[in-house]
Design a protein around this nucleic acid. Sequence first.
DNA 1: GCGACATAGTGAGACGCCTCACAGTTCGGC
DNA 2: GCCGAACTGTGAGGCGTCTCACTATGTCGC
Lengths: 233, 233
Amino acid sequence: MTLLANPEQRTPSVNKAAILRQHELFQELDKDSCEQIAAYAKIREFRRDATIFSKGDDGFCLFAVVRGRVLVTTSSSEGKSAVLNQFEKGDIFGEIALLDGRPRTGDATALTDCCLLSLERRDFIPILTKKPEIAIKLLEILSGRLRRTTEQVEELMFMDLRGRLAKTLLRLSGGAPGGSAELSQSELSHRVGMSREMINRQLQVWSREGVLTLARRRLTVLRPERLEEIATR
Amino acid sequence: MTLLANPEQRTPSVNKAAILRQHELFQELDKDSCEQIAAYAKIREFRRDATIFSKGDDGFCLFAVVRGRVLVTTSSSEGKSAVLNQFEKGDIFGEIALLDGRPRTGDATALTDCCLLSLERRDFIPILTKKPEIAIKLLEILSGRLRRTTEQVEELMFMDLRGRLAKTLLRLSGGAPGGSAELSQSELSHRVGMSREMINRQLQVWSREGVLTLARRRLTVLRPERLEEIATR
DNA sequence: GCGACATAGTGAGACGCCTCACAGTTCGGC
DNA sequence: GCCGAACTGTGAGGCGTCTCACTATGTCGC
């Protein structure tokens, strides 16, 4: 790995405890306990497009995002792929395989250069026993995840392209007028789970209707309420 | 409610602790703790087709199945519905809404007459704090659930009718030669998420090929390996 | 035994989305 | 400023699935 510009990235001796405390999972924990856990955590850097783990791997650890963005995808035997989830600063991921000891359910790749904290199973499980408030917090996080995934199943079963695209755009743009997302239409097609061509055609329609504006790798939602309407119908 | 035949069903004073101990979640717990928890648990009976909870309800409690079967479904605004999950003796359900305090994500109905144990949020959360091994067990269960739901997303994105139907049949019939499932084709269509007519046509094909036999509300898989082959392609 | 109802089977037409093919546009590197 | 690569836009044809409409076959209550 070449040296990076930011000095923090070269020194694994940054204050891990402080980073941990920023995370949802450890927020209600006292300083001492945080430092204790931090002692077990490893800092790991990944370059843009690097593979963090692959579907089918044995999953020994859980990750927390310190900086950057991570994409979790899955792919079929015929090479099609779809986005399952995206994580940013403050999120944790990789917990399923860690908790039930079975293989990874998806591929994780670095969407940008990023800095992650990893905690191994053998260190993490005892923490859960000693600090049940962390286990409870984790249960909440997992519930939210399950809720989101269930919603995704519903979307796939009941909604057509327009609805799913509308919903995805609202998520990506933040839902406020003028909110925008930076990605290519082919990236977008993978998130929605449809062909690039169809995505393009629908975007054209909305562009003509003044619902959004299109530019190269950028998409600005002008009237989110219209998308909302379409998504909930 | 009319009186039921089985005397146990009329007496809520059955040994709740013993029932609890049969459940995955409480298996590793000592007898005293079980009795403590059992004191909080309520026994609740539901008739076939009764609604246990509905999507959007506030979810204050978690259920454990003592006897019978429960179906969790979801439905779209246009009245279509799809099966999310099915639970039997020894399973627990309804934990998402309990854990994150948000509304129910699906409708739960009694598939048969059934007997459930319910634990309320205000009683359950303190138990998790005092007994972290239960929290960890619950984390495992939730991970498995998330894994299964993610798999469902993949199926919906990548597989066609044949594949999804094959997979569903394997699950329902147990996967062994001669395994059978008792449901109507229209019930089956809801589990697969496709129209009854298409399901019927594909079943005809397999029936002609000798992969399975069809009867009214009964379906016997003769050659599961053929279905396996189709499902994994 | 009869009528009502749930279940199963089948054809025809429509519709949504996919794939392929190709042209036009923008961007970055040299 | 030119070239190649990434991205965007668009038509045509095909395939899978849905819907509608209808018939056939049990099955249950009376």
